[in-house]
């Protein structure tokens, strides 16, 4: 699958280091982020959500795009300090020098094989350096929360909200 097919629109600048939540689609985008961050998330989403994403390729692509859009919206509502933290993290993950320091390799994440990314995340998860634990948890939370925010992704959960209340939404 070509990861670049997921780069479908303007993108916001960061991902949440401390997030757990998402924004209604009724909100307007306030700022736009480098497309490279969208590529980065498009690379990591299939790793974090392996086993959860749809099996059919087109459905999978749609699910990833929805998740990317939700991540974008999530970041827009975070307080400034959290947004700055996330920007810092994403910039580190896109800088070859930082990547060398924190992963031991100059290869950009978007060019790495899935097994290499899994090893990297497992290493951060277990690492004695708090910064790496935090990076793992931040990426995990924003991706998991953004994926499961969408009703389109609740099929495997067999979770539906009640439909007997009529409102504006």
């Amino acid at each position: 699958m070509n990861r670049r097919t997921f780069i479908t629109g303007a993108f916001v600048s960061t991902a949440a280091l401390a997030v757990g939540v998402n924004l209604s689609t009724s909100f307007t985008r306030q700022e736009h982020v480098q497309s490279s961050h969208r590529m980065l998330f498009a690379t990591l989403i299939p790793i974090f959500l392996d086993g959860a994403l749809p099996d059919v390729a087109t459905h999978k692509e749609q699910a990833i795009n929805r998740t990317l859009n939700t991540i974008e919206a999530t970041i827009n509502v975070l307080p400034q300090e959290q947004r700055e933290e996330i920007t810092l993290l994403l910039n580190m993950l896109e800088s070859r020098f930082s990547l060398l320091l924190i992963t031991g390799s100059l290869t950009p994440l978007i060019l790495r094989q899935p097994f290499e990314l899994i090893d990297m995340l497992e290493s951060w998860r277990q690492h004695f350096i708090t910064l790496l634990n935090t990076a793992y948890l931040g990426l995990r939370e924003v991706i998991m929360a953004s994926y499961y925010a969408s009703p389109e992704h609740w099929g495997r959960l067999q979770y539906v909200k009640p439909t007997f209340v009529v409102g504006d939404n």
């Binding site: 757990g20 939540v21 998402n22 924004l23 209604s24 909100f27 939700t70 999530t74 509502v77 925010a149 969408s150 009703p151 909200k161 009640p162 209340v165 409102g167 504006d168 939404n169």
Partner: peptide, 14 residues
């Protein structure tokens, strides 16, 4: 209540 659509993605940011 007209805003409360029983979805986390709406409730948490709002």
């Amino acid at each position: 209540s007209r805003h409360f659509d029983m979805e986390e993605r709406t409730a948490y940011p709002n």
